[in-house]
Amino acid sequence: MPPSDAFDEFFDKIALPTQPEDRIKSAWDRLKDHIVRHAEISPDDVFLQGSYPNGTAVRPADSSGGYDVDSCAIIAADIDDPDAAFTRLEEILSESDDYAKRLDTSKPRCVRLNYEDDEYGSFHVDVVAARPCADGHLEIPIRNTGWRETNPQGFQDWCLQQPEQFARTVRMLKRWRDETEDDDRRGIKSIVLQVLVAEALPAGETDDATALATTLANMHERLAPHDTPPELCNPSLPDEDLTQTWSDDDFELFKNHLSDAAEIAEQALAAGTSKDAHDLWRDLLGDAFPPFPDGGNSAAPPSPPAPGHVASRPRAPRDERYG
């Protein structure tokens, strides 16, 4: 199996299948209609945000995971108190007996609707209340805290303006993150990962293996010199530092994972046989990456390592890495 075919198969495996896609669409269509009617607002004031409309959503790594969709409703235009905005949103949703029993009001920035698990994992919809502010941006309430400026439509526009390889690489690295992190609360946030990928992605590269390896190498080069998370501006909200809440310990853990990933990807590019390359990509990306087909250990000319990356050192067994 040529590497390009293996990556295409991997990409298909980590994309959301038809059933979750249909479930998201059905749940969203019904929810949007409910909010529009009961809040008496325009359909344009209720919209999806986050990875699903941005084209970077991935399916759960296994059935113990979950998939979700994020949404925003501009229902707080005349409300000054952040907690009152949550109350209004909860009241609107509670007009439906079905939504009332699904409500989770424990989240600091949204109201969550929990649905029954299916074969792909748990499923929920997060709804954020919002009000307009300057420059066409929005403000969202944070419980017991205050208002926070945001620009979800601007970030979506920025994502969709990136080259096609951006979304493919982000999805692959999201799966790598989900396979790597022991605790998703300590893993890198999706928005941070996306901005780092945009910075590190080699211009004009369309080969998945090369794009992935080079992006990992460039990200590692960018972060390795820092002991604390460096500033990373939100491209849709330049005054926001996306790494401000990233703890030093979690940042250091991510750098360790990133260093190892860049090394594995470099070795996969330079592997002397197709089977060796497949094995290394599976080591990096998990079992969703297809194994090398039975019947051979065909030679493959080694590719050059990712630009600027030094020759790799011998690697410890997987269970000995990071202590």
Rank of each mutant, 00 (worst) to 15 (best):
residue 5 D to E: 14
residue 6 A to P: 02
residue 7 F to G: 02
residue 9 E to Y: 00
residue 12 D to M: 05
residue 12 D to F: 00
residue 15 A to Y: 00
residue 18 T to W: 01
residue 18 T to M: 08
residue 19 Q to S: 12
residue 27 A to I: 03
residue 27 A to D: 11
residue 31 L to T: 04
residue 36 V to H: 09
residue 39 A to I: 01
residue 52 Y to E: 02
residue 52 Y to R: 13
residue 54 N to V: 00
residue 54 N to K: 10
residue 55 G to L: 10
residue 64 S to F: 05
residue 67 Y to C: 04
residue 69 V to A: 11
residue 70 D to K: 04
residue 77 A to Q: 12
residue 78 D to E: 13
residue 89 L to Q: 03
residue 90 E to M: 09
residue 90 E to K: 00
residue 90 E to F: 00
residue 91 E to N: 14
residue 92 I to T: 10
residue 93 L to P: 01
residue 95 E to T: 13
residue 100 A to F: 07
residue 101 K to T: 12
residue 104 D to C: 09
residue 105 T to H: 07
residue 105 T to I: 11
residue 107 K to D: 13
residue 109 R to D: 04
residue 113 L to G: 04
residue 114 N to V: 15
residue 114 N to K: 15
residue 130 A to I: 08
residue 132 P to L: 09
residue 134 A to K: 14
residue 136 G to A: 04
residue 140 I to Y: 04
residue 140 I to T: 15
residue 142 I to H: 10
residue 148 R to Y: 06
residue 150 T to V: 14
residue 152 P to R: 06
residue 157 D to V: 11
residue 157 D to Y: 02
residue 158 W to I: 10
residue 159 C to F: 01
residue 163 P to N: 09
residue 170 V to A: 11
residue 170 V to S: 07
residue 179 E to H: 10
residue 180 T to G: 01
residue 182 D to T: 07
residue 185 R to E: 11
residue 187 G to K: 12
residue 188 I to D: 00
residue 189 K to T: 12
residue 190 S to V: 07
residue 191 I to K: 01
residue 195 V to M: 03
residue 199 E to S: 13
residue 204 G to L: 04
residue 205 E to A: 11
residue 209 A to K: 00
residue 212 L to V: 11
residue 213 A to D: 08
residue 228 T to A: 15
residue 232 L to K: 05
residue 233 C to L: 07
residue 233 C to D: 15
residue 234 N to I: 02
residue 235 P to R: 07
residue 237 L to Q: 12
residue 246 W to V: 14
residue 248 D to Y: 00
residue 249 D to W: 01
residue 255 K to D: 10
residue 258 L to A: 06
residue 259 S to H: 13
residue 264 I to L: 15
residue 268 A to F: 09
residue 268 A to D: 04
residue 269 L to I: 03
residue 271 A to I: 05
residue 272 G to C: 05
residue 274 S to K: 10
residue 276 D to N: 11
residue 278 H to G: 02
residue 281 W to I: 13
residue 281 W to N: 09
residue 283 D to N: 14
residue 284 L to A: 09
residue 286 G to K: 09
residue 290 P to K: 03
residue 290 P to A: 11
residue 291 P to M: 06
residue 293 P to A: 06
residue 295 G to Q: 08
residue 296 G to S: 08
residue 300 A to H: 05
residue 300 A to M: 14
residue 301 P to M: 10
residue 302 P to K: 09
residue 306 A to H: 04
residue 309 H to V: 01
residue 310 V to A: 15
residue 312 S to T: 15
residue 312 S to N: 09
residue 323 G to K: 05
